[in-house]
């Protein structure tokens, strides 16, 4: 904590300045001659970046704080998007009501699925979520009467870039502030305790199931909200553009790049990833996902602490570093309550 307070004041000041600066962008577009340097595409890009920040922060609640690394997080985005899509185009609900409905549907789905899936641990949870993602995409394809199947749905067009810019900006500030606050509450501490040692937490009186399901639903709600907004902004949805495999990977890379389990990590990671990718995207469109894969491997193998971890002096290392340095046989996974040792690894016939 060397020079902690000054550093904090300076970074908080910079953060506020950055938010205020960003908030003026649509004004510049509106009042400057020819929009100044701000174009609709600038606003659109920032909106996408805010969305990535929000989703990354919500993913970090389960993956970073609670230690349940979710490989299918895009499913909540997709359900949120389809929620708005169906409610608006099939039932003709107005946008705000449809968004609320979409979030409610997402939370309901998360609570229903979370019951069984959160009983799985470690890689079993991660991969069950990946399967959920793939499965929901297929289900959306199948129930054509509701979702339009592979053809997709067209939403009432509404092109107002500044509106989406402000909604997502405010949401990003609110969500990040919320995670910052949550991390400091008893609830947040409990999530960390579950990550560090779930069995121990259970045996010390913590209702781990309740906490896991709550945070899972919360994370799904936030991501579902982003999906709901995205669908309306995009005005068209189909299974392939909503349930893109790479969306979950973007989120995971953003969080790990920034620093898993930290509040600032998802924000920094999302900003860096978004602009780095924008440069790559612009120049080598077709290599984008290949580079993304290489980046993921490189971060995991060489910079597991992420940006936040590398530039701070946190004792005891960061979450990913901790989760990674943990050997499989060590406590805080299921073994070592005294029951026989490691995962049995055998080859038999």
């Amino acid at each position: 904590m060397r020079g902690g307070t000054t550093f904090r004041k300076v970074s908080l000041g910079l953060l506020v300045a950055a938010i205020v600066g960003l908030a003026t962008l649509p004004m510049i577009q509106r009042y400057a001659t020819d929009g100044g340097f701000v174009t609709n595409s600038t606003l659109f890009n920032f909106t996408q970046m805010f969305m990535l920040i929000i989703v990354a922060s919500s993913w970090n609640l389960t993956g970073g704080f609670t230690g349940y690394v979710d490989f299918g997080h895009g499913v909540w985005f997709g359900i949120g998007a389809y929620g708005t899509g169906v409610l608006m185009s099939k039932l003709g609900w107005p946008f705000p009501v449809a968004v609320a409905g979409a979030v409610a549907i997402t939370v309901l789905a998360a609570l229903l699925l979370g019951g069984p899936i959160l009983r799985l641990r470690g890689p079993y949870f991660s991969i069950a979520m990946l399967a959920t993602f793939v499965a929901v995409r297929e289900i959306i394809r199948i129930v054509k009467p509701i979702t339009g199947g592979g053809i997709g749905l067209t939403l009432p067009p509404y092109l107002n870039r500044p509106l989406f810019f402000y909604i997502t900006l405010i949401l990003a500030v609110v969500v990040v502030a919320f995670t910052w606050w949550l991390r400091r509450t008893q609830f947040g501490l409990t999530l960390i305790a579950i990550r560090e040692d779930e069995i121990g937490a259970d045996m010390r009186g913590i209702n781990t199931t309740l906490h896991k399901i709550t945070v899972f639903g919360l994370s799904a709600a936030i991501t579902g909200l982003v999906g709901a907004l995205w669908a309306y902004q995009n005005t068209f949805i189909d299974p392939d553009i909503v349930f893109v495999d790479s969306r979950t990977m973007d989120v995971i890379i953003a969080v790990i790049l920034g620093g898993l389990g930290t509040v600032a990590g998802p924000v920094i990671g999302a900003v860096v990833l978004f602009w780095a990718r924008d440069i790559i995207w612009a120049n080598f469109l077709q290599f984008h996902l290949i580079v993304q894969g290489i980046v993921l491997i490189a971060i995991v193998l060489w910079v597991p602490e992420g940006i936040v971890g590398t530039f701070s002096d946190r004792s005891g290392g960061t979450t990913l570093g901790r989760l990674m340095s943990k050997r499989k046989g060590e406590p805080s996974s299921d073994e070592a309550v005294g029951s026989p040792d490691d995962e049995p690894r055998t080859v038999s016939s």
């Binding site: 690394v69 490989f71 470690g122 890689p123 991660s126 991969i127 495999d245 790479s246 990977m249 995971i252 790990i256 996902l289 290949i290 993304q292 894969g293 290489i294 980046v295 993921l296 491997i297 995991v300 193998l301 990913l320 989760l323 990674m324």
Partner: peptide, 13 residues
């Protein structure tokens, strides 16, 4: 977690 992340990246590549 490491093998999942690394092979996830490998799959994408």
């Amino acid at each position: 977690l490491i093998s999942l992340l690394v092979t996830f990246g490998l799959a994408s590549i």
